[in-house]
Simulated scan of single mutants.
Amino acid sequence: MRLRIFTEPQQGADYHTLLTVAKATEDLGFDAFYRSDHYLSMGDGDGLPGPTDAWITLAGLARETSRIRLGTLMTAGTFRLPGPLAIQVAQVDAMSGGRVDFGLGSGWYEEEHTAYGIPFPKEKFGRLEEQLAVITGLWQTPPGEKFSYEGTYYTLRDSPALPKPAQSRIPVLIGGFGAKRTPRLTARYADEFNLPFGSLADTERQFGRVRAAAEEAGRAADELVYSNALVACVGRDDAEVARRAAAIGREVSELKENGLAGTPAEVVDKIGQFGELGASRIYLQVLDLSDLDHLELIADQVQAKLS
């Protein structure tokens, strides 16, 4: 089981804060640093100092780190056209020496689109499918050949399909609770399926759907990596757990039910239950980015027990 750190910078974090967390992620032996792709805070916070762009952030971190993988849960498909996005991600992959993972989702938070003048189309899933076809098609086109695509939403003609990523294949992540279309897209395009903030029962059900879709598409179900994203709130004792829960405005009981909360032993046990269902990666949503002691505790008392 590998642990990855997952941040939500739209809630209030500048680049320097993210850099500090990313360096701690690397120094403490975690597998990867991920971030969300949002432009507007959620809940009661003011979001100060304001949003940071996901791929500009990851470009900077690509030059400031050397080992950890870098990625998004998930890049919003509504924010960027697929051709320029393919160029951006390939460039960041090259800047990192081939350490980028690419999570792509349809985009869902209408208020942030309104706040920054971004169109919010009614039909997002069809666009997502075409974006996956275009982006992976551009990356996979052999050098010297051209890429063309004729879709409902996007048309490309005689693209040189450059630049190429540093990796021969950038891992693609797809996630969500969709019962039919999400598993089908995962089976066709993804290397990893991620279930965000789901219970053990949700995980068993959705992993099963994805496995079935992969086999129906002619892929071995075990070709895919299966992962969960869960909020983390770990403390050496109950008092420390309560303090960390209060700092992020959550209740301990709710976090224990819906996330990874409690003492290290409790969290190790629950991670093991997700592992039994097929998860091999856990994305730890860390909401208090100033609490680096939290990361140290997880590294020393949770991650060390999982190796």
Rank of each mutant, 00 (worst) to 15 (best):
E123G: 00
R157D: 13
F120W: 05
G151Q: 01
A166S: 09
E145V: 01
K124E: 04
G151D: 01
L162N: 11
A166Q: 13
P142H: 13
F147I: 02
G137Y: 07
P143V: 15
L162M: 15
E130T: 04
G144I: 08
V134W: 09
F120M: 01
G151P: 06
E130G: 06
E145G: 04
K146I: 00
A161L: 04
A161N: 08
S159F: 03
F120Y: 15
Y153R: 00
R127L: 02
K146G: 00
E145T: 10
R127S: 02
G144F: 06
P121Q: 08
G126N: 03
K146N: 06
P165F: 03
L162D: 13
R157H: 14
P142E: 13
R127D: 07
K146R: 15
F125L: 11
S148A: 11
D158S: 14
A133E: 15
Q131A: 08
E123C: 00
L128T: 05
T155F: 00
E129I: 00
G137D: 10
V134L: 07
P160T: 08
K122G: 12
D158C: 09
F125S: 07
A166F: 12
G151L: 01
T141A: 10
A133R: 10
T141L: 04
L156C: 09
E123Y: 01
G144L: 02
G151A: 02
A166I: 00
Y154T: 03
F147V: 02
P143D: 15
V134Q: 09
G126T: 07
P121Y: 06
R157V: 11
F147Y: 15
L138F: 14
I118Q: 09
G137E: 12
P143Y: 07
G151C: 02
P160Q: 10
E130S: 05
G137W: 06
G137P: 11
E123A: 09
A161K: 02
Y149L: 03
K122V: 10
G126K: 04
F120K: 03
L132D: 12
P160C: 07
L162C: 10
Y153V: 07
S148E: 04
P163M: 14
I118T: 12
I135M: 15
V134F: 08
S159G: 08
F125G: 12
P121M: 07
A133I: 00
Q131F: 06
Q140T: 01
T136I: 00
L138T: 03
R127H: 03
G151S: 05
K124G: 11
G137A: 07
G126Y: 02
K122A: 14
K164D: 09
G151K: 03
A161E: 11
G144Y: 07
Y154V: 11
P119A: 11
P143N: 12
S159D: 14
Q131V: 02
T155V: 14
K122C: 03
A161C: 12
Q140K: 14
